[in-house]
Simulated assay, not measured.
Amino acid sequence: MQRIPNETKLFIFDIDGTLHVDGVLVSGALELLQRLRQENFQIRFMTNTTTKSQQMLLDQLNGLGIEANTDEILSAPEASRIFLKQEQQSSGRPLKIWAVVNDHIRADFDAFEHSSERPDFVVIGDIGKDWSIDLLNQIFSCLNRGAKLIALHKNKFWQTRQGLKVDIGLFIAGLEYVSSQSALIMGKPNITFFKQVLASAHCDASEAVLIGDDIDSDVGGAQRLDIFSVLVKTGKYRSEYHAESKIQPDLVIDSVADLAQYLA
């Protein structure tokens, strides 16, 4: 039976679809996390969620009974803020950005000048039902005037209690097509995002294990750095999609609770 590598020091968990599905805790997830902490493994929570601030994510985990602190949570909006801060420092001038994001994370970009006419960067996250053809055309105009496109992630879909729903990847792919530019992806599967997680725990890729429900963003991103990857059959997992994918996880389990039996 396949085992988690003996040299493992860090477990990186996707949140939505892996630890909970639309706010409902996956059975056995809490017990697994408690065991890992008792055995002195480091834990990080890595998410492409773009509708919650760091504090909201922490409150959500704590509300589910999951022990965590803000230093253990790395989100796509936070990765974007770090990137833009570095860009601003290297340019030597204030950056102008247009943050097309959820109101809950808008304050994350307060350190930059705002412009929806001639921004240096257009940052796109999940804005739910606020998408419109007029908004897309306004973004398109900015890109045509030289703005660079930043996507907090490019997920195709996400899991809700009502089934799969399209995610912002639909809009990102369309904007890339009409503007003839490739978006800078901040969240998974961007390897820079994974490197930030590893650095926060002072671990090498060979010492980490990634657990997620998205074979593209979670597993695909982890494997770019040779991080041992575990795919769970919860959340957005679909057997047909898995069977057709060229990405092969190191381990496939029914749910995160089953990880315990694969520990060395």
Rank of each mutant, 00 (worst) to 15 (best):
K165N: 03
K246P: 03
H20F: 10
K195Q: 14
I185V: 14
F194K: 06
T160K: 01
Y241I: 15
S180A: 12
V166G: 00
G174W: 02
A264D: 13
F13M: 12
E244T: 13
D218A: 10
F171S: 05
A264W: 11
G17E: 07
R93T: 11
R161Q: 15
L30A: 07
E67S: 14
L263Q: 01
E87S: 09
E67D: 15
L19T: 06
Q2W: 00
I127N: 12
L175F: 09
A264T: 09
I12S: 02
A79C: 11
P94F: 07
R224T: 10
A79Q: 11
E7Q: 14
N190I: 00
I172D: 05
D108P: 04
M1R: 12
A222H: 01
G212I: 02
H202N: 15
Q60S: 13
A264Q: 11
V100Y: 08
V26W: 02
K246E: 05
S90W: 04
V230P: 06
Q60Y: 00
N155I: 00
S115N: 14
I4F: 10
H104E: 15
L25F: 03
L30T: 05
F112K: 00
P189C: 05
S53D: 09
E87W: 03
V123P: 06
T18G: 12
V197Y: 00
R106V: 05
D120T: 01
S132Q: 03
V256T: 07
R81N: 08
F13Q: 11
P77N: 11
V232Y: 00
T18Y: 00
L84E: 05
L164M: 12
F193N: 05
T18K: 09
V122Q: 09
F140R: 12
A183L: 10
F83P: 04
L74A: 09
S141L: 15
G146C: 06
M1S: 15
G220E: 06
I215T: 09
S132M: 06
Q34I: 11
V232I: 02
C142M: 12
F109L: 02
V24Y: 00
